[in-house]
Amino acid sequence: MKALMSIGALVGVVGLLLLAGMIFDIIPSNTIRLVEGYMPMQMLFEVGCYVLGFTGLSYMLNAMGMGIPRFWQGIGFWIFFLLYIKYRIYPPIPFSVRAMYGTVGLVAVLMWVSSNEEDWKKFKQPILNVLDAQTGFNKVLRYVYLIALPILTWGFSYNAMMPKSEEPIELRTVHPAPPASTKVHGKTYVLQTSLNPYRVNPEGKYDQEYTNSLIVEQGMGRLMKPNANPWDEKAEGYLKYVREGGEIFFQNCHFCHGDNLNGRGLHAFAFNPIPANFTDPGTIAQLQETFIFWRVAKGGIGLPNEGFPWASVMPPWEQHLTVDEIWKVILFEYWHTGYYPRTWD
């Protein structure tokens, strides 16, 4: 047990040193890379390791007679967590999310320290000591709080009320609900039922299962399936349409959406927000092909009221591309990212 706890304590100390390095900018946050694009288990795993590490550390310190009081354990862990989400996670997360996580962290700490009567008493004791002020030190501390707390409250209020020159926060609706139907080049398409006419099997019939089988899932490293190379000149049917879609994409779209379709094209950073990242599982992967068709055809200018604040510079591509070209480019986007369009079966 002691050996196990010693390992835990070591993990805790190393973890704390690493975090301190990140806070003081000695170690860049991305020294240990956070994996992008999938279920972010890494962050939870790291925090879990810290929890185990701190448990080990606490055990060892107790064994050495240097135990940390429960009050400081709770406060310390919360401060650690706030620093972790501020300095470890990159790119930096917005304040709103940090506030949410910080609150969850605080609630969790309070639940822990008050889960039983004994711990709760231990946690409260330093607070009660200051309030009772039986010693000189506590008396001084009580006066300090008496003066500091109103000043802090005033400071927060002043800061909150003071007009700021920052741009206001925007609650942007990234995927507004599409209309029931859309009219492109004079033809009406019902979004719930329309199908990509190029998603076909060798017999020329619509076949999502067949086309899915020619896609390599993103997790496999975006390799091509054997004998399924769209750039093979002999490729026919679906693969040929993917190639044609690719050509259209690289002639028109990749300047913004990037050659990896990750929204980081040549012009991407001229815009705020940058263009959509198709490799993100939250974009085309969870939308029907007809949704993409509507967005490509109508562009940012065609966003509905719900799409406030309409922060999109996407051109209405129906003015530049034919219907067939739009369908083909969509086909290519799904093929390249390894995602399948959403269906409702």
């Binding site: 996670i89 927000p273 990242n277």
Partner: peptide
């Protein structure tokens, strides 16, 4: 965790996109 986070345009720029590349994935 929301998929589309509430943020100022400055935070949006610092994040480099509408979705956070790591934590944004909790949003699905």
């Amino acid at each position: 965790t929301p998929h589309t986070m509430v943020m100022t345009p400055a935070e949006l720029k610092a994040m480099g996109g509408q979705q956070h590349p790591v934590l944004g994935n909790y949003g699905v």
